[in-house]
């Protein structure tokens, strides 16, 4: 991936976390992280289990605060505007910054089609030309050819890999500018995983993608930039090729060479 897309010119910054701190009801899970998310690039958040990469991701669309007892401090800029500024509607942030979860979670009482339109309905927004939106979203998620013959079947009747692509299509239907993915392939088999990874290359044309993974190979395969997170700190952030071939930090080197994690 990195070889296909030379980094001659720095891409514009889509999101920026500034001295971000986050707590759960028990402990501080993010200890002051500053991080840039490039537009139309894939940024991987990598690190061992429990390092804080998922909470960091969930701070980027204000999902972290939905966990009881949690707290967030610092700023997260989206196109230069702080999404934590007073008066900001978290729901609007979440419409602009979509999210895909570890486990596929299509709504079980909805058809494939209704799952795609769920975002609009849940927000009380009218769907202009819903059929086109459904087709376009499914196309973008590389699922259209597999489900086009029967859009009325329940979303949960699909295979796990298809369900996860349905969830990606559901997020894309709202036209987000950033797509957050929390270990989207961790419950999928290798074939389904590689389909999602292929899909990431295409999504990159339209949106900024942030993907959490504890799988180093996945980070190396799919991302342009990699952030190595350890114990709530950002240890190192750089272009993915440099992180894996020439890390500056000792801890990063130990992790990518398999000495811990």
């Amino acid at each position: 991936m990195t070889s296909d897309h030379p980094h001659d010119s720095e891409p514009p910054v889509k999101m920026k976390a500034e001295d971000l701190r986050a707590w759960t009801d028990r402990e501080e899970v993010i200890r002051g992280i500053t991080l840039r998310i490039a537009d139309k690039r894939i940024t991987a958040l990598m690190g061992p289990s429990g390092c804080g990469k998922s909470p960091l991701l969930r701070c980027l669309n204000r999902m972290h605060e939905m966990t009881p007892g949690s707290r967030v401090e610092g700023r997260v800029l989206l196109d230069g505007k702080d999404i934590y500024a007073p008066g900001t509607n978290p729901a609007e942030v979440r419409r602009r910054v979509g999210m895909v979860f570890k486990k596929p979670n299509p709504f079980p009482h909805m058809s494939v089609r209704d799952n795609i339109l769920a975002g609009l309905r849940l927000n009380g927004l009218p769907a202009e030309r819903p059929d086109e939106l459904v087709e376009r979203s499914l196309q973008k998620a590389a699922l259209w050819d597999e489900v086009a013959d029967d859009l009325a079947r329940p979303g949960t009747s699909l295979s796990r890999g298809q369900q996860q692509r349905l969830c990606i299509a559901r997020a894309l239907a709202l036209g987000p500018e950033v797509l957050l993915m929390d270990e989207p392939t961790s419950t999928l088999d290798p074939v389904a995983t590689s389909r999602i990874e292929d899909l990431l290359h295409e999504l990159r044309e339209h949106v900024a993608v942030v993907i959490v993974t504890h799988n180093m190979q996945q980070a190396a395969r799919v991302s342009d930039y990699t952030a190595f997170i350890h114990e709530g700190d950002l240890v190192e952030f750089d272009r993915t090729d440099r992180i894996f071939t020439n890390p500056r930090e000792r801890r990063t080197e130990d992790y990518v060479t398999g000495k811990f994690g």
Binding site: M63, M66, V93, F101, N105, R121, L122, A171
Partner: peptide, 29 residues
Amino acid sequence: VPQNLREGAYALGASKLATVNAIVLKSAR
């Protein structure tokens, strides 16, 4: 009703009321 369905709705920008109404109650009916 599984928490991940609620999260799925919140991540689409749904309000709490819309989530309860359109997702939680429908799943639990």
